[in-house]
Nucleic acid binder design. Structure first.
Lengths: 98, 98
DNA sequence: TGACAAAATAACAAAATTGTTATATAATAG
DNA sequence: CTATTATATAACAATTTTGTTATTTTGTCA
């Protein structure tokens, strides 16, 4: 029997808010693009209704790789990786200097 | 005597359009985020009215590093690099999946 | 044309990211 | 509480990107 219940965003937010670095970044008006990216990735996955493991499978990487990308402390993003994710889920990656 | 004359966008576009890969990417409706990033970087530099060398100096890297980032064939972007550029020029890097 | 400035290309070591495995922590259902 | 699922953390080799130097091509202007 397949479980499709996921943690809600609210739960996730609550959990992440216990992380001092995450809180700090959220408080900054010009918020950090790395944390912002982690959020975007999580939101994408949630929209798809997938667990990290399922999401990871579509990208042919293990779950741990997705956990790392969604971590608020991760700063190692490459456009290659983000583009690969975007196209796997029929999205377009947009990059801007605003 | 200091020259501040730069190639215009039109000139640049004309030049790049001779590049088959560039043309191909531009023709695709869901245009490539790598080429798009190269454009964004060039536009940012143009707005600042800087040569590659001057732009590079503010980032503490040689001109060649900027030429590479502005090349339509470059696919090695990291958010670290893009963020460094954004903040050096008081911009915010925006990343989205659309 | 020649001299000079701007930009592009190439090559390589150093640094950073990715994929991977193992393991730990957290949440949920029973 | 226990079993199970979901997510997080750590460590390391393989791959990729960065910084760098050298060189080349392109454009501008006298």
């Amino acid at each position: 029997m397949k479980k499709i219940k996921l943690q809600s965003f609210e739960e996730w937010e609550k959990k992440k808010l216990k992380d001092p670095e995450f809180v700090k970044a959220c408080e900054e008006p010009d918020d950090d693009p790395f944390i912002e990216t982690a959020w975007q990735l999580l939101k994408l996955r949630e929209k798809m209704g997938l667990t990290q493991k399922e999401f990871a499978k579509k990208l042919h990487v293990p779950q741990e790789a997705i956990a790392r990308l969604e971590s608020p402390r991760y700063r190692g993003y490459s456009l290659q990786t983000l583009h690969k994710i975007a196209s796997t889920f029929d999205k377009k990656l947009q990059i801007r200097f605003i």
